[in-house]
């Protein structure tokens, strides 16, 4: 009986801890913003910290994220044109559906997945290493809250970076899809844009940005959670990184499903 219930109990416990960490992060973010408003010195320090994190999380991910999304855009056209030609004997739908899938799904999910692998694993490894070397405990000893000083800057940086990257990614994927369509199907860029714009609506852009905003918050929370709960030595850090990447990816897909569902109901 215990063995059957154990995974569910573990899942509930972990979910509770993550939610607690999320609420804590939001609370400390509010405190930080208040401090920034009250003190110029603090404002500069926090600004510097956030910009540094955005640089390491956002700018350093540009190449990998945009390379990935560029190929995803191309793959979507190749695959769709093949399948639609096979089933419908027409490729007229390709630009429209490709644009829809790029703007509604790929532009947020692909960068988020890449960020979960690259940034999430980095945060887990960093925090996990600090955990196993008792640096976290040392911070607590000198009255520095690890959530406030370790998680909040990464939380902000990851959220902002993912929204920015997602915005650029949608354009890059659209452009590569257009290029492949022009080359493979002989549809001119003007026709591609006109057909695509007939399908996509402004709300598709807002849904994409909202998803990026949500995934950007989820990745550092899951990563930090596994970092704080790292046990053992280097092996423990590796295990924590693996869990962080796997569960981030899983949560991204699950949340994507619910957000998409809600969007189809309410928009």
């Amino acid at each position: 009986m215990h063995s059957i219930a154990a995974p569910f109990l573990d899942f509930g416990r972990v979910l509770g801890q993550m939610l607690r960490l999320y609420v804590e992060s939001l609370a400390y973010l509010a405190v930080t913003i208040k401090e920034m408003a009250m003190s110029r010195k603090r404002r500069l320090a926090v600004y510097s910290s956030w910009m540094e994190q955005i640089y390491w999380i956002g700018n350093k991910s540009v190449s990998i994220v945009l390379s990935t999304i560029a190929f995803v855009g191309m793959i979507s056209i190749v695959e769709m044109s093949y399948q639609m030609n096979r089933v419908l004997h027409s490729t007229d739908f390709v630009p429209g559906f490709a644009a829809l899938i790029i703007f509604r799904e790929f532009a947020s999910v692909i960068p988020a997945s890449m960020m979960a692998g690259k940034v999430g694993a980095g945060i887990t490894a960093e925090v996990g290493s600090m955990q196993i070397t008792e640096q976290i405990d040392a911070m607590r000893l000198i009255s520095l809250n690890p959530v406030k000083y370790l998680v909040v800057p990464r939380f902000v940086a990851c959220t902002v970076s993912l929204v920015l990257l997602s915005s650029i990614a949608s354009l890059v994927a659209f452009a590569t899809a257009m290029a492949v369509t022009s080359h493979k199907l002989g549809i001119s860029p003007e026709m591609f844009i006109n057909t695509a714009l007939f399908f996509i609506k402004p709300e598709d852009i807002w849904i994409n940005l909202f998803k990026a905003f949500v995934f950007g918050q989820i990745i550092p929370i899951i990563a930090a959670h596994y970092g704080f709960h790292t046990r053992g030595g280097a092996e423990g850090v590796g295990l924590a990184c693996t869990k962080s990447v796997v569960y981030s990816g899983l949560v991204i897909v699950i949340l994507d499903f619910y957000i998409t569902w809600a969007a189809t109901v309410f928009l």
């Binding site: 910009m51 920015l164 609506k201």
Partner: peptide
Amino acid sequence: SQNSKVALLFIAAVAGLVGIIFLLTG
């Protein structure tokens, strides 16, 4: 500098977003 690179990322993203909205709204 680091800040300039981050600013560039911001500008690129905002420009992309504005471009898409510009296209979509006709």
